[in-house]
Design a protein around this nucleic acid. Structure first.
Lengths: 214, 214
DNA sequence: CGATCAAAGTACCGTACGGTACGGTTCCTA
DNA sequence: TAGGAACCGTACCGTACGGTACTTTGATCG
């Protein structure tokens, strides 16, 4: 019947409120708490409307992911010129943002949801998360890396590999630990600074003495 | 089959077989497929026995994790002396093993299970996984790092930080991508070698010219 | 005002699962 | 050979959830 193509439909305000309630339920109680009756009760809407708007439960889950990511939409601030001073800042800001995003409760809840459904065959939720969420961040990082190389601040052969290195230095096993339920205190700024420092020791060039400290 | 003596003190052989069947079900069909009736059918045992042995469903899940990790028991091969030539090998072997473990289907299934239950209050599954599984690997890596430092091959201030750096360089976002259902081809040896190379560029010392290549 | 339409609220249905109970079978032991 | 323990297979129960249908409310418009 309905082709669920890649059209990223916008949701009506009412639907947005409902999806917000659903996200709230998911964050608070996990997937188990995300029942159709529960969403309907929390959002003061009818189950029939839920099924009319989102098709079925899986459609609701997918809509929640799309909705959330349509809100978070990464804003690229690449207007200014790159200098030796602010390039490191750009990297550190990226690292900070990445940590904050990954550690956000909504992000964690959605990732848990997608991972829980990953074993199912047609789940598509993991794909949605990766496609719409992760790729955004990856593109932003890659643009930054390429700009740094063009400006002479970075040296690397494979941009893919450089990105993975940066990501690993920033995140390490933090994401999985958070997903498993650990709640460590995170100093995103400090952590990001150290990661960027290590990354620049690996790939930095013409950045002054800063890349040798620590 | 072969009696190992020190193997499975907690579970009888029959229970081990049942847990094996349960793990198989979990790997194949995810948590949804792991029903008490399903396990009983697959293992040719009665539901009553399941509840007698493991208490309830959560007890079964916890037992599956304990059982699996009692099998995998990381074997430390630190008998030989460290030399400049084989220290790098040790690191690369560790990296290779780490990737293989994380990418194993049973490991992925159990991690998905624990992550799915992480939002629940008393889940403890994530704690079990971290405690029994991750800590093992962490101890092995840390012993290796400390030995490398004592032998003069490594230089770092904070062993914790050095370990996280090594882990991040090896794994990056691979683990989460696997958990989300992506199935990339992984060359564990190659990936490990690159990670170790970068790690040694950051923290290596007195290792000849190898750490400057690539 | 009366018609219409969207949506809330509720009742309902089928199913699937966790957990329990019970009869039948095997095997060990006195 | 009798008794008992362990255990299998199955039937059963209560509940909870996904999904559907029906009734009611309330707003818009001719």
């Amino acid at each position: 019947m309905s082709e669920d193509g890649m059209q990223m439909q916008e949701f009506s305000p009412r639907q947005g409120v409902v999806l917000e309630c659903a996200l709230r339920l998911l964050v608070d109680g996990g997937e188990k708490a995300l029942t159709t009756a529960g969403v309907a009760r929390a959002a003061n809407c009818s189950k029939e409307s839920l099924y009319k708007w989102f098709g079925d439960r899986d459609g609701l889950l997918a809509s929640m992911i799309s909705f959330q990511q349509s809100k978070v939409r990464t804003f690229e601030r690449d207007g200014e010129r790159l200098t030796a001073e602010n390039f490191r800042d750009h990297l550190e800001i990226f690292a900070h943002d990445l940590i904050e995003v990954l550690a956000g409760d909504v992000s964690l809840a959605l990732n848990r949801l997608a991972i829980g459904q990953a074993s199912r065959d047609g789940s598509k939720l993991g794909g949605l998360l990766v496609e719409r969420g992760r790729r955004q961040i990856e593109r932003r990082a890659r643009a930054l890396l390429e700009a740094g190389r063009r400006a002479g601040f970075l040296r690397f052969d494979d941009a893919d590999e450089a990105y993975h290195t940066l990501y690993g230095l920033i995140v390490s096993d933090l994401h999985v630990r958070l997903l498993l339920g650990e709640k460590p205190e995170i100093d995103a700024t400090r952590r990001g600074r150290k990661a960027v420092s290590a990354f620049l020791r690996l790939h930095g060039r013409n950045l002054g003495e800063g890349d040798a400290s620590l």
